[in-house]
Each structure stands twice: as C-alpha cells, then as structure tokens.
Design a protein around this nucleic acid. Structure first.
Length: 607
RNA sequence: CGGGAUGUAGCGCAGGGGUAGCGCGCCUGCUUUGGGAGCAGGAUGUCGCAGGUUCAAAUCCUGUCAUCCCGACCA
C-alpha cells in the first residue's frame, strides 16, 4: 500500500482522552478513533492487526478440531430467562444492553453466547456419537460496562473469540479444556506476548475451574500473585496462601477495657500495644439477592488481614438458596443511609463484636432478621484474642471462641492473599506480584447451562443426560492493545512481527530524486511479489517526517532508499532493536523474507 | 451510582463582562530535502446545549448533556 493513497494522519501530541501509553499511541498513530465512550472505530491499520490476530486464533482453534461459526448478536430475552441470567445481566449492575422491539419483545445485545450456543446444542446434539464438539466464533460483543476505560482495554463494544465445548462427561470436558489451554498458550506465544496463565474466579459465567491468560504489563487492571518456582499463579481475586503466623496473645484473662478513639485496627493495636494478629476484626456487609432479599453479613477475620470481596460474593452466592434467591446482585459495605434503612439504633461502628445482636435489625420484608455470621480461618485459630465489645469506646481482650463468643458454623476462606504470603504448595516460596491484562479466560462450565436450558443427549446406555460444557474467550481487540502496552518506546509502537499491520515500510527520503524513487518502487513490488506485506512511503514529505511516522506506527522493518544507493545498497532498520545495516539492493528482499519468517516461526513452536 | 476534572478552530491549549486567540495541522507560492523544515500569504468557530442576570455573556448564575480520572462495581 502506498502511503500517499491511504487515509493516513498521525498526531504529534497525545490525545486528551487517553491515559495509558498504548491508548495514546494507537490514537496518535491512526489506529483507532473514539466514536463514543467505550466505543471505537478500528481504522485500516488496526483492522489489519485484528485480522492477523484473528487468523492466528483461527489456526490454533481449528488445529484442535474446533469449528468456526457466527452466532447472533440480537438475543431474545426468553433465552436468558431460561438460563436464569436475564435479571442479573439487565438489572442492578447488569452489563447487557437490553432493548424492546416494535412488537414489545425484549431483546439483549449479546455480551456472551452461552445461551445461544446451548440453544443450538439442544436442537442439534442428540447422541453421544456426536460428541465431543467445539464451536467458536470471532465477533463483536456488547457490554454496558460500568466504567469503560483505556481505549480498547475495556470497551462497551469489542471483538472477542468465544468457543464452547460439549462433552459427554466431566472427564471429556477436562480433555477439551486442556486442548483449549494448550491452544491459548500457542496463540499468545505466536502473537509475541509475554503472559502468564493463572487460576481465576469464574464470576457470573459460573462453573468450576477456570484460568485466565494475563499479558504482563504495568497498566493491567488485574493483580497476579505467583511463585518464583512457576508452580503457582493466580489472580489476586482467587489466590490462596498461608497468612503470616499470629503472634501469641499476651492477654491471658478475659477483660473489657476502656479503649477510647480506637475504631481502626491500627489505632487499637497501637493503644493496646498488641499485634493486629491478636485482634478479631468484624466487618459488616450488605448483600442483595436477585429476589430482592437483603441480608446483613458480619465477617470475622484476623485484624491484619483483609476480606477478599470476590470470595465473599462467591460464598454469598452459594448461600443464596437459604434466602430464597439464586444469585447475588449487589454487595456493599452499608453506608450511613443504608444503615438508617434497617438499624433499630446506631451501630457501634469500630467496636463491633462477632456476637453483635440481631436486635439491631428492624423487622422488615426483604430483610433477613438475623446477621449472617461468616468467619475466616485466620480468626477461628485465635486464642485469647482482642475484639469489639458492641459498645463504642470499649474492646474486650483475652476472649475465646466457645467461651465468650459462639463460633459460627460458617467457617470459610474469605481472606485476601497478598504479595509476601507463603505459598500453600511450598511454604518456602513466597508470593510475588505482577500486573496483568486479562486477554483470555477459559472455564469448565459443567452442566450449568445445559441443565437450565434442557440441553441433553442420549448416552450409550440410552439415558438422556445433560451435555457437559466448557467456554473459552479471548479478547481479540484487547489483545491488540495489550501488545502495544507491552511493547513500545518513546518514539512509538513496536509491533511483534506476527501481528504487525505490515511487515516492512519502504521509505523514499527524497521524492524528487528519481533514483531513490525507482529503487524504492522496484523493492516495493518485489516485496509484494514474495508475499511480504509492505508499505511504500511515497509522500511528498521530508525524510524526518517519514522516519518519525514509521517509528510511531511501529512497522518492524524499515527500508530506506537513500544515500547508500550510490554503493548499490539500501539501509534496513529493525524497529525493535534500532539496529541498522546496509544491504545490497538485490539482497534486501530475500534477507527480509528470512528475517520475517524467523521472527514469526520462532514463536510458533511451543509446547 | 458517589467523588474530582474538563468542554473555546481538525488536534493540543490560553483567555475570564466590551473586536475570538496561540501552537501544531490544513490550503497556495517560493526555498529546503536523512529525524516532526523556513519564509510569505490564506481558510477554518453556534466558545457543548438551554434558560437567566446585564446596556453588553465564551466569561457571572441555574439547569442540562458529553467526555476523562478515582472509587464502588465489572466476562
């Protein structure tokens, strides 16, 4: 492609809308333009990048035997009601764009496709003889994100590859899952990205096991905890670890103490000259279920530890049935206004004990009459501990479970792991931290959707049983931006060769010099002939402008038909290393062909 | 949804009751031609929108919309 004929406009200054380097660079270099909040146009350069990524994804998916298809973006609400997700996806914090058509029918714009694919499976898969099966698509998804961010990183409209596997049983699903796991490793390696596969929370998608593929970058929205031996890595939302040991309590006798102005753990530990590990902290939450039921939750945890709200929400989801609900639609620390809604009298905030009386709760419809008391193991293990007294200004010390305080039967890990914790698989390993961009997520769904929607098949014994599913996503447009976030310098983008919009750019420093022009034309057409995707900068611009633009756009190899033409050579510059060498006009195309092939295949061969 | 900020030329920004500005970009011409050129000339505005105050509003007031950031939240 000739630059003189392209829609090509670069910006010298950073756009005001962008915050992180990759977003700034993609706008400056003319890859994307914002159309609305979280909605971006993919301009010709980016579209080529997306096609490259899609092709790699396609090849690796096809290699596993998966079949490509294209499902619908408009999805009838009935489908989502069958799976039970219509309410959670459209109400409260729901992320589905919902609309009503002229007949008054409710529809959603697809944020994900479990429902649609399960409908297809229900219609078409009848026998175990048709299994296993894996269908995938590459398509625009719509999500009404609470806060779109950072360009393509978190858009309300974005391109995703989603795959769905169907197996006869759990074992088969695990095989399908492992195939996808391998394919994802291959895809990210081929795209030239540094990444880490980590244990993950399954969130609203549901199911048992899941892993995320994190592209490592400081601007990542997720925190990853991992051990140096490579045997453990998890999203901080999911991570487990050994907490630091508690310091034995100096308080041997149960006593209530006057502790003025100590509503926080730090102030209390300081006042009592004790360790935060000797304190039982009691944190109040308010959960709302999909049936409108509200429950006040009191979480007891060791004072030096924090509650992992994802773990908490998952536990509350498991308990939904006890309150007549099926899913959590809201979880928060109740504000003062919230407290006024249900509290019979002011709460002793900062001085709450594990046995805070249920009398604080006003009887009301849609409000559980009793606190749900959850306790983390870090608190269970404590003896002679310090905790609140349910009276402002006073704490108790030397308390024990089963004596002063009943021990809740809801003992569950709610603790947030942090860097520096000892690992469970090997306590000599401590957790390290890194930031990551979630590019892929694979789930073992099991029968959640097939049961809800009646997607069954007949097994060898002639029994009708639900299909066992897995689902697997890759954020294609997010991957493109993550690649930039991971690879740029002060002058612009440095694309991995495999996903660069073009492999090479031929720069004519002086368009008025016929020798330069004709040499460039020859090389340009030769590059095209051997299948190297090339740009020709034939604009009537000064050389400096062209070099700056080539760097900014990030084309891996730059060929300059300049001064060295006198010796029958051209200059070739590697964008990533900035290495420059002069190569004879006749050698340059085969040389580039070799370099490019090496750069691409070096990434292809991985386990 | 809470907190914060910003809306003025295509982009980045200044101005702060009385003629609409700067830099970059754009157009024309000449010169220049290996790291975002120089000179000369030129075009481009509902100052987000709607009300209000005033002799007079980009500027003050009220409302509203949009965008960005932090948080809550989020496959």
């Amino acid at each position: 492609m000739r630059l003189s004929q392209m829609l090509f406009a670069t910006l010298r200054e950073d756009p005001a809308e962008a915050e992180i380097p990759s977003h700034k660079l993609l706008v400056r270099a003319g890859y994307i333009r914002r159309v609305g909040s979280g909605v971006y146009a993919y301009l010709p350069f980016l579209w080529r990048v997306l096609q490259k990524i899609s092709q790699i994804v396609r090849e690796e998916m096809n290699a596993t035997g998966a079949q490509e298809c294209l499902l619908t973006q408009l999805q009838p609400s009935e489908l989502w009601k069958e799976s039970g997700r219509w309410e959670t996806y459209t109400k409260a914090e729901g992320i589905m764009f919902a609309l009503t058509d002229r007949q008054g029918r409710e529809l959603g714009l697809g944020p994900t496709h479990e429902e649609v694919i399960t409908l297809i499976a229900r219609d078409m898969i009848r026998s175990y003889r048709q299994l296993p099966l894996n269908l995938y698509q590459i398509q625009t998804k719509f999500r009404d994100e609470i806060r779109p961010r950072f360009g393509l990183m978190r858009g309300r409209e974005f391109i995703m590859k989603d795959a769905y596997s169907f197996d006869a049983d759990e074992a088969g699903m695990k095989v399908s899952y492992q195939k996808m796991n391998r394919a994802y490793h291959n895809i990210l390696h081929r795209c030239g990205l540094a990444f880490r596969a980590v244990d993950a929370d399954s969130g609203a998608i549901g199911g048992s096991g899941s892993q995320e593929f994190m592209v490592l970058a400081d601007a990542g929205e997720d925190e990853v905890l991992y051990t140096a031996d490579g045997k453990y890595a998890a999203n901080v939302e999911k991570a487990i670890s050994l907490p630091p040991d508690a310091v034995p309590s100096p308080f041997k006798a149960y006593k209530k103490l006057d502790t003025p102005n100590t509503p926080t753990i730090a102030s209390l530990a300081d006042f009592l000259q004790c360790s935060p590990t000797q304190i039982v902290k009691n944190v109040l939450y308010q959960v709302t279920y999909d049936n409108g039921m509200n429950v006040l939750v009191l979480v007891s945890i060791r004072g030096d530890q924090d509650v992992n709200e994802v773990k908490l929400q998952n536990e509350l989801g498991r308990l939904a049935g006890e309150y007549g609900g099926s899913a959590v639609i809201g979880l928060k620390v109740p504000s003062e206004e919230d407290q006024q809604q249900w509290a019979t009298k002011p709460l002793p905030l900062g001085y709450i004990a594990p046995n805070l009386s249920d009398d604080y709760i006003q009887p009301a419809k849609n409000l559980a009459a009793q606190f749900l008391r959850l306790i983390d193991p870090t608190a269970v293990e404590l003896e002679n501990f310090v905790t609140g007294s349910n009276e402002s200004g006073y704490h108790v010390v030397g308390a024990n479970w089963g004596q002063e305080f009943p021990l809740s039967k809801h003992q569950v890990d709610l603790r947030k792991s942090v860097a520096g914790d000892r690992s469970i698989h090997d306590p000599s390993q401590t957790l390290q931290t890194a930031r990551g961009i979630e590019i892929g997520h694979i789930f073992q769904l099991g029968t959640k959707y097939s049961k809800a929607m009646g997607a069954t098949y007949t097994n060898e014994q002639g029994e009708e049983v639900p299909l066992v599913m897995g689902c697997y996503g890759i954020g294609v447009s997010r991957l493109a931006q993550a690649a930039v976030e991971q690879s740029y310098d002060k002058d612009g983008i440095i694309w991995p060769v495999a996903i660069a919009p073009y492999h090479a750019i031929v720069v004519i420093p002086n368009i008025n010099d016929n020798k330069q022009v004709s040499a460039a034309e020859v090389i340009y057409s030769e590059l095209n002939r051997v299948g190297i995707e090339a740009l020709l900068d034939d604009r009537n611009e000064r050389a400096g402008v062209k070099f700056k633009d080539a760097d900014l756009v990030g084309i891996p190899y730059r060929i300059v038909t300049g001064r060295s033409l006198q010796e029958g050579k051209v200059e070739v510059v590697n964008r990533a290393t900035r290495e420059s060498q002069e190569i004879s006009v006749h050698e340059v195309v085969p040389t580039l062909r070799r370099w490019i092939d090496e750069a691409i295949t070096a990434k292809t061969d991985v386990a």
